[in-house]
Amino acid sequence: MTEFIIIMLVKMFVIFGAVMLTMTYITLAERKILGYMQIRPGPNRVGPWGLLQPIADGIKLFLKEDIIPDKASKVVFVIAPAMALIPAVMTLAVIPFGPAVTIMGRQVDVYMADVNIGILYIFAVSSIGVYGIVLAGWSSESKYSLLGGLRSSAQMISYELSMGFALVGVIMMSQSLSMVKIIEAQKGVWFIVPQFFGFIIYITAAIAELNRTPFDLPEGESELVAGYFTEYSSMKYAMFMLGEYINIISVSGIVTTLYLGGWSGPILPPLAWFMIKLLAVVFFMIWVRATYPRFRYDQLMTFGWKVLLPASIANILLTPVFMKIFGYL
């Protein structure tokens, strides 16, 4: 039992540390890639190629004055960033970064837990994140924050639906909710091929769920200044940002696991394959950000309810037909 606890604790620290490191460098990568796409160099002052920029950013945010607006309801204002960050970290528990490896004569899995309801767990946990945002918007007592919070909650709730439905196709094909079983089911062909339609729906909804361009209305700079975190500063602001970028990693991890065959791939070790695929998904999101403008609020809702949701339902209906034709059943 003690051994189990120790292994779990070590794994927890390793995975958390690795994800935090990846996340900080994804912020740098985002700025660099955006920079190159926009014919400018991006951060290049702190360290070679700006490699120390994330650390400088972290220190800066940490040393900033922590402002709580006078009229804000203080308890909620303080709790909200944590409520946005914690669920983001919790989803990491079920993302399988690699298969079991042998360390010092022990079989150790490179993931926290292979829950038999992995996907359900992710949905359950990630939906809590929206509370952080709503409460942040509400407790700030600022009109811009309030509008941002409202937009965000409406958006996340409506897109979560099509996101869940899109995944039903994958669940049908793998006949399991466990992340590891789903990877094993993709031994022959990655689910991006038979579930291409579902993949498109999922990634669209996921970008919306992450509040990224073209669905970045909650923090639409040109409209709502900074949306729900307008009034936040210092580490509380940093916690929202952390949550956001960890969510990017976990969503990319989910896409990798469910559609891109997870850790499987030739020659390179599984963990490397997982990272390559994950970063490819992240790159795709950054690319979209450099290219697309922003939807209008009502167009966003229309798109979610009238286009994505019917499409995802159609995907559910078509998947069994497809499976019958191609002999999966």
């Binding site: 955006l34 926009q38 361009t213 970045d216 040109s222 697309y292």
Partner: peptide, 16 residues
């Protein structure tokens, strides 16, 4: 105008 409606990259091309 691009920035206003969220298209970031266009701004830099115009500036060039």
């Amino acid at each position: 105008f691009g920035l206003d409606i969220g298209a970031m990259s266009l701004f830099f091309y115009c500036m060039r």
